[in-house]
Amino acid sequence: MPDSPGLGEQALNKATEIGLSSQLDEVENLDVNIKTDPLKLVQGEVDAVTIQGEGLVMQKDLRMEELEMQMTSVAINPLSMAFGKIELTKPTEAKALVVLTETDINRAFNSEYVRSQLQTQKIHIKGELRTINPQHIEFRLPGDGKIALNASIKLVETGENQQVAFSAVPRISANGKTVALENVEYGESEEISPELTKAFIDETSEILNLNNFDLEGMNLQVNHLKVEVGKLTLQASAYIEKIPSASK
């Protein structure tokens, strides 16, 4: 079979899979496919590197349903291959696709990290400074290019329960690194505190911040954000200075 990878490619595929997995909290499936021919490999030339992953859990308990990354014309140090590594001799660019589901983002919102972020803030509610304790946060992707959030919180000082509900349209910032929420519309309940709503809007932007998806040596910049019922798709370009590999 002419298309079957050679031993050198197989070793690199496996080393890169292990290296990437070592940077993730959880991995359901990860597949690295390196295409080149043995003569080019000796000269440090790789035609293409494709990375495909499913169920990848990053820092802050943020899970990606899917990750696809494609690099072409990659220059590597041929000596590094003897150690089962891909050492880039110059940075390379890649195309990347990240899919997040409604369930993934809900998981992040209800993680210990986000709860602690919200609990450390003192927020003005009806003229009084209050500490909030999130009871349950429901993030939804209802379609129409919108996100929606409904949160029940307890005010620590009074034991009172309050609701926060709004919908908004996510937009990529000019630098391609952050997501801002525009056209905020409030739910049926009156807005009890602009500061409280802002805290949840800021936290939504923080969860969708593209720095969360950067792996060591890889830097993502989002070009397009697609919001559908139940899922968010981010199309990005990646600037790659190094490809994580299995440490020896």
Rank of each mutant, 00 (worst) to 15 (best):
residue 111 S to D: 02
residue 69 M to W: 03
residue 2 P to F: 07
residue 175 N to I: 08
residue 225 L to P: 03
residue 12 L to Y: 06
residue 228 E to N: 09
residue 155 L to C: 08
residue 159 G to K: 09
residue 116 S to P: 04
residue 235 Q to L: 08
residue 156 V to A: 11
residue 204 T to W: 10
residue 44 G to L: 08
residue 40 K to M: 09
residue 224 H to P: 07
residue 81 M to Q: 14
residue 84 G to F: 04
residue 30 L to M: 01
residue 155 L to N: 03
residue 104 D to F: 00
residue 241 E to P: 03
residue 120 T to C: 04
residue 161 N to F: 08
residue 133 N to Y: 12
residue 117 Q to D: 05
residue 160 E to R: 10
residue 39 L to I: 13
residue 67 L to P: 00
residue 212 N to T: 08
residue 58 M to D: 00
residue 238 A to Q: 00
residue 105 I to G: 00
residue 164 V to H: 04
residue 143 G to N: 05
residue 140 R to M: 13
residue 131 T to A: 10
residue 10 Q to F: 02
residue 38 P to V: 04
residue 234 L to A: 14
residue 23 Q to G: 02
residue 228 E to S: 13
residue 212 N to E: 01
residue 119 Q to Y: 05
residue 205 S to K: 13
residue 27 V to S: 05
residue 14 K to A: 13
residue 241 E to H: 06
residue 90 K to T: 10
residue 182 E to V: 09
residue 134 P to K: 02
residue 156 V to F: 05
residue 111 S to G: 02
residue 20 L to K: 00
residue 123 I to T: 01
residue 62 L to I: 15
residue 103 T to R: 14
residue 25 D to E: 15
residue 85 K to H: 09
residue 119 Q to C: 03
residue 62 L to W: 06
residue 164 V to M: 03
residue 194 P to L: 07
residue 169 V to D: 04
residue 233 T to V: 13
residue 189 S to P: 08
residue 50 T to E: 14
residue 124 H to C: 06
residue 136 H to N: 12
residue 138 E to D: 14
residue 200 F to A: 07
residue 136 H to K: 15
residue 79 L to Y: 11
residue 15 A to S: 14
residue 100 L to T: 10
residue 194 P to D: 09
residue 150 N to T: 13
residue 94 A to P: 04
residue 17 E to D: 08
residue 241 E to K: 15
residue 163 Q to R: 14
residue 111 S to W: 00
residue 109 F to N: 05
residue 170 P to E: 08
residue 215 L to M: 14
residue 48 A to C: 09
residue 242 K to Y: 06
residue 62 L to N: 06
residue 60 K to G: 08
residue 59 Q to N: 15
residue 73 S to Y: 10
residue 208 L to Y: 01
residue 221 Q to S: 14
residue 144 D to S: 12
residue 114 V to F: 00
residue 146 K to G: 07
residue 135 Q to R: 15
residue 180 A to H: 12
residue 174 A to L: 10
residue 94 A to G: 04
residue 201 I to E: 10
residue 187 G to K: 01
residue 220 L to W: 01
residue 176 G to F: 05
residue 185 E to M: 09
residue 150 N to V: 13
residue 101 T to V: 06
residue 62 L to Q: 13
residue 82 A to V: 10
residue 69 M to D: 02
residue 163 Q to N: 12
residue 110 N to I: 05
residue 113 Y to T: 02
residue 146 K to H: 11
residue 190 E to Q: 12
residue 47 D to K: 15
residue 198 K to F: 05
residue 237 S to N: 14
residue 209 N to T: 12
residue 50 T to G: 02
residue 115 R to W: 03
residue 166 F to T: 11
residue 248 K to E: 11
residue 140 R to V: 11
residue 186 Y to P: 00
residue 88 L to M: 09
residue 5 P to D: 04
residue 110 N to L: 05
residue 246 A to W: 08
residue 177 K to A: 08
residue 133 N to R: 13
residue 178 T to I: 07
residue 114 V to I: 07
